[in-house]
Design a protein around this nucleic acid. Structure first.
Lengths: 138, 138
DNA sequence: CAGGATCCTCGTCGATACTG
DNA sequence: CAGTATCGACGAGGATCCTG
């Protein structure tokens, strides 16, 4: 088949590295938001992303900027204004992320359901098996 | 434009929830591997994934199973044999993940480069600005 | 408004040892 | 082989306060 262990290792490394950034929840959010809205200010992002702390948003943006995915434009005004946008590379990432996004909203319900099924079964099994305790105490 | 804040919030929630699972490095790896190879045993996955601990692989597989993305088949033999595969929903996830995978290997180099550029600039700025210290100490 | 600095907590993960 | 159980270390991340 099409599986070469060597190339697999290399891809694995690249994925591993890239995933450390883009696999991050907030990064995906930021790229998604910027991909949809073009350009946003710090507090606009903060409001839209819902749950992100100021610290995390700052760090996320810095990392994305460092990786060449996000541009940071400072307007020397008062009050200060900083706008964030996607670089060309960032825009190419928006494609895959959108796919992921679509997948999420499409299958979210199914996942929630699968979880409750799994949990119900797990609980049932746990309840049906107090034997361990009985033996241990007997 | 096509941005509705309300639907955004909902999607944000769904993404947030889903990303907690699939945004996880190991989960992506596992789904990727299973997507490519069809079905794999525990230690096969462990060997292929390169760096995952036995504990993390177990947890990852349990979570994926719980979310209805991975099947777990136990063969009552000795020595024990357990095979993992993707569910139908899991297979649909393999698409988006493959996109991400491809993107990773395609842009990995550019990212590494962007980082070193950024770091070089950051270092230069830090070196060019000992004024703070000078003022503070003067 | 946009962030830097700090503290502190909670969860994550790896290592290890044991089981069926 | 395929796990479970436990512990300890570490770092991510939130809360808070402060600056330009």
């Amino acid at each position: 088949m099409s599986l070469h262990d060597t190339s697999k290792s290399v891809n694995c490394h690249a994925m591993s590295d890239v995933l450390n950034r883009i696999g991050d929840k907030w990064s995906v959010m930021v790229v998604g938001m910027l991909g949809r809205n073009g350009t946003l200010r710090f507090n606009e992002l903060k409001r839209m992303i819902n749950g992100v702390s100021q610290r995390m948003l700052t760090l996320t943006l810095r990392n994305l900027e460092r990786d060449g995915l996000v541009t940071r434009t400072i307007y020397p005004e008062v009050p200060p204004r900083v706008e964030y946008g996607l670089t060309e590379m960032g825009k190419t990432l928006d494609g895959p992320i959108s796919k992921l996004w679509d997948w999420s909203s499409e299958h979210h319900t199914a996942i929630i359901e699968a979880r409750s099924v799994y949990d119900a079964r797990a609980t049932a099994v746990a309840a049906a098996e107090p034997r361990k305790v009985a033996y241990a105490q007997g």
